[in-house]
């Protein structure tokens, strides 16, 4: 019997290694270890030679007191960028698209949703390239061809004159589609009888949206708000590609600033210190997002007890 138990334990261990081993290894290597490394590097003066000489809190003092670009330009820009994109596109426009595409004929709705998914589904470099064409300040630019050629407006330079507005547009056209998809499926899952009942009770289109649809999708809506705040806070890919943070630092958001300090200026220690703030925010928000998941269902116990 004792041999049997030992054999069972060995098999259990082997199962664990076979099934879960690869995942744990990868997750440790590129999630857990980087967090530890990042915490450590944040307290060093690591430069472009990738070596460090001293351990101190110098980086954090620099962030708080000495880095005027960070405190006077980058942080306000980040704030306006995140708030603007979130409020206008990711939540509001995503919601509007979901409401409108579910109100028209199903096939047409799917067609327009597919169009709005196009930017999300194309590679970031291509998407950025299209924007570069659109905003070219000469009469080659698409925007100017329409505004100037069609409506006779003067040539505009979006990047030069309204750079924050530009990066909000660039990210917003992608951000709106996530809200659109999640909310569309949330709206679809509202029992049809509720809509029927409301119409019979005398509600018109707008009342139905206000009293039936919106209350029913408030969970997904708050999920999107929290999740997208985090995504926007850490994202810099499109900004990097379209404006490269310019002109000057006018569109350099926090995450892009971190990246440039580390990889362009070789200040890895300082970059890691600033990244640590994002890592902490990321963990806190990720913990918050738990509330949106149906833990009970996820945690159901296995029903086969032998291994």
């Amino acid at each position: 019997m004792a041999g049997n138990i030992r054999a069972t334990q060995a098999r259990q261990r082997a199962n664990f290694v076979i099934f879960l081993g690869p995942a744990i290894l990868l997750l440790f290597l590129f999630y857990v270890a980087p967090v530890i490394v990042n915490i450590f590097i944040a307290f060093t003066d690591m430069g472009s030679d990738l070596k460090w000489t001293e351990i101190s809190t110098e980086n954090f003092e620099r962030m708080a007191r000495k880095d005027r670009i960070l405190t006077h330009t980058v942080i306000p820009v980040t704030f306006f960028f995140v708030l603007g994109t979130l409020a206008v596109f990711n939540v509001t426009f995503g919601l509007i698209l979901a409401l409108v595409t579910t109100s028209v004929q199903a096939r047409s709705g799917a067609f327009f949703r597919a169009i709005w998914l196009l930017p999300r589904m194309s590679p970031s470099v291509v998407y950025a390239l299209l924007w570069a064409w659109v905003i070219t300040p000469t009469d080659y630019g698409l925007l100017n061809q329409v505004a100037n050629g069609l409506f006779g407006l003067p040539l505009t330079d979006l990047m030069g004159n309204n750079p924050v507005f530009l990066i909000i547009l660039v990210n917003g056209f992608i951000g709106a589609s996530l809200g659109m998809i999640i909310l569309t499926s949330a709206i679809r899952s509202i029992p049809e009888h509720l809509f029927h009942a409301a119409r019979v009770d005398g509600a018109g289109g707008w009342s139905i949206v206000r009293h039936i649809t919106l209350p029913a999708i408030r969970w997904p809506l708050s999920f999107i708000t929290v999740y997208q705040t985090l995504s926007l806070l850490v994202s810099f890919e499109y900004i990097w590609l379209v404006t490269d943070g310019g002109p000057f630092y006018d569109t350099t958001v926090y995450a892009l600033y971190v990246y440039k300090r580390a990889f362009f200026d070789g200040q890895y220690g300082y970059g890691a210190a600033m990244a640590l703030v994002l890592v902490i925010v990321g963990i806190v928000v990720a913990l918050m997002l738990w509330r949106f998941l149906d833990m009970q269902r996820l945690m159901q116990e296995p029903r086969i007890e032998v291994n």
Binding site: Y31, A33, P34, N38, V234, G271, L278, V279, A286
Partner: peptide, 18 residues
């Protein structure tokens, strides 16, 4: 679940170093 929501982009410096 936490990792699912956690933005990996923030770890690009240590990943580079690793």
């Amino acid at each position: 679940l936490v990792l699912h929501a956690f933005p990996a982009m923030t770890l690009i410096i240590p990943i580079f170093l690793i």
